[in-house]
Measured scan of single mutants.
Amino acid sequence: MDVFMKGLSKAKEGVVAAAEKTKQGVAEAAGKTKEGVLYVGSKTKEGVVHGVATVAEKTKEQVTNVGGAVVTGVTAVAQKTVEGAGSIAAATGFVKKDQLGKNEEGAPQEGILEDMPVDPDNEAYEMPSEEGYQDYEPEA
């Protein structure tokens, strides 16, 4: 019985440690998101679009440190934060509304985080759909 109880105690310690790591990862992701939003706020009209992409990228980098179902929630929060940063930029006159959601080359930025393969159960990952990809044929 002692062996059984000791095993359960060790398992509990492992769960607590994993929860603490997840909590730490979420806190880091939130900190990076805040950094990115402050970065966007300090940019001029020309830099705002690039700044919004930076927020998304920093958040995406930190999301990889967070495991399990938390990833889905962090990704949703990050996307809403990026959308909010863009709205703030438009409201303050840093950028025109028609410039939001495009990178410096004018290509749409939507789907940055949505296409990231995420499995809350950590069982399997699927690649994003290939609808947006084109076949590449090298020139002879």
Rank of each mutant, 00 (worst) to 15 (best):
V74P: 10
N65G: 12
M127W: 10
F4K: 02
K43L: 07
M1P: 00
T75I: 15
E114C: 05
V26C: 11
Q24Y: 15
A85C: 13
A89C: 11
G86A: 14
K34D: 01
Y39S: 13
K32Q: 11
E123A: 01
G132T: 06
V118G: 07
V16A: 03
V26R: 00
A89D: 06
V40D: 00
G41Y: 15
V95F: 12
E46A: 15
A17F: 13
E131D: 05
D119P: 09
V66N: 02
Q79Y: 11
P138R: 05
G73D: 02
Y136F: 08
A19T: 11
A29W: 07
A69I: 10
G14W: 05
E131C: 14
V55Q: 00
K21L: 07
K23H: 13
G73V: 10
F4T: 09
K45H: 01
G84I: 12
K45P: 04
A76R: 14
I112N: 13
V82H: 12
T22C: 15
V15P: 00
G93E: 08
G41W: 05
V95L: 09
S9E: 13
A30F: 09
V118F: 12
G86Y: 11
G101N: 03
T75D: 07
E46G: 02
D115F: 13
T81C: 08
L8R: 01
T54C: 01
M1I: 15
V49L: 14
G93D: 02
G73P: 03
V26S: 04
P117C: 09
T92P: 04
F4Y: 02
Y125M: 03
A89G: 03
Q79C: 06
K102Q: 01
Y125C: 04
A53G: 07
G132F: 07
G68W: 08
K32G: 12
A124N: 12
E126G: 08
V82D: 01
E13V: 03
Q134K: 13
L113Q: 07
V95D: 02
E35P: 02
K10L: 09
E57I: 13
T64V: 04
V71Q: 02
E35H: 14
K45W: 11
G101P: 04
S87P: 01
G73C: 08
T54W: 12
A78S: 13
A107S: 08
P128V: 02
G14L: 06
I112T: 04
K6D: 12
T64Y: 06
T59F: 09
E57H: 03
D115G: 14
K80F: 02
A78E: 01
S87H: 10
A107H: 12
K97W: 15
D115V: 13
E130N: 08
T33C: 15
G84T: 11
V82G: 01
A91T: 13
G106N: 07
K34M: 10
I112A: 03
T64M: 04
G84Y: 12
E137N: 12
K102D: 09
M5P: 00
I112V: 15
M5R: 04
K97P: 03
E126S: 05
A124D: 06
V74Q: 00
K43R: 05
P138F: 08
H50I: 11
E123C: 01
G73Q: 12
F94I: 00
E126Y: 06
A85G: 04
D135T: 05
K96Q: 02
A27Y: 13
H50A: 08
D119E: 14
L8K: 00
S9N: 09
K58Q: 08
N122S: 14
T59S: 04
K21Y: 14
E131L: 03
G86P: 02
A17Y: 09
A91W: 09
Q24N: 07
D119Q: 08
V95T: 15
A124I: 02
E104F: 14
E131F: 08
A89T: 11
D115W: 05
N122P: 05
G7F: 11
A90E: 05
I88Y: 01
E137S: 12
K102G: 11
A140V: 11
L8Q: 00
V77G: 07
I112Q: 13
E13C: 10
Q134M: 08
K23F: 05
Q109W: 02
P108L: 05
L113F: 14
E105H: 04
K23P: 00
N65F: 07
Q109I: 10
V77K: 01
E83Y: 13
E61M: 04
A124F: 13
K23M: 06
K96N: 05
T44P: 00
E123P: 00
V26K: 00
G111K: 10
G25A: 15
K45Y: 09
